[in-house]
Amino acid sequence: MVGHHHGGSPVSDGPTWADLGRAARAPGHPVVALAGNPNTGKSTLFNALTGLRQHTGNWPGKTVLLAQGVARHRGKSYTIVDLPGTYSLFASSVEESVASDFLCLARPDVTVVVADATCLERNLNLALQVIEVTDKVAVCLNLVDEARRKGCECDATMLEAELGVPVVATVATKGRGLGRLMDTVAGLNSGTITTRPKRVVYDPDVEEALAGIEPLVTRKLPPGAATRWLAVRALCGDMGALELVGDMSALELVDGTGGAVRKVTEGFGLGPAPSWPAARSTTSTAGGKSS
């Protein structure tokens, strides 16, 4: 269910990630997800690729449902999914949990991060999170016309080298670059293009804790799930992530890693992490009650 982090929220009518993953994965129809910040042109791109007329107004939050359509490219059909705009995959709002659950659990065959070239830094924050989730990812550097007009030039080749994933510059409203984008998507899907995402390296103690958590999370998830990213979210005290990994309690997580997590969450004597969830078990709370 899409709205599961929001205490009895009524948002549940749309299909769940699992439904979508199943329905979309028609044989020979790879699933391509469009992720990105709000107003980066995802819906415009979606319309341009699928010919479907989805309304695109210029305000954040207008796409609250997953829109699906079929794009044909060089004789092959792709199911394109337009995700709601999000700033991150930490799932702190309805839109974010929809997008995040889809990427982490429905596991699209290819993910395209649509980034706004006029505001790259903010968009890279999300792109870096998405490349934590999957290898089969490309960045669509959209709105390059606006960027040029505003007087900033963005070097797609260098960006590609920095991220370790393909970057394609586009102008979605004029259809520029879409052919190359779909070529890249096709290559990623068939395996003729491989990526070597340069993942963010966190602080050493955080990495140590992650190394402890990841095997625990992996055990609870179907093969192929985004274990590292779910481990990051779990470490950050994200209740949604814990629910996703099969109602694992925070306590279980802390005890299972032999102190690595406790060290991080109580780190520097700065007190308990404020967002640790209450454990499901009868033991009161996990994480940092002791300090």
Binding site: Y87, S88, F90, S92, E96, N125, P274, S275
Partner: peptide, 8 residues
Amino acid sequence: RRRLLDLG
């Protein structure tokens, strides 16, 4: 806090 961090 989570939301503020996500917003930058």
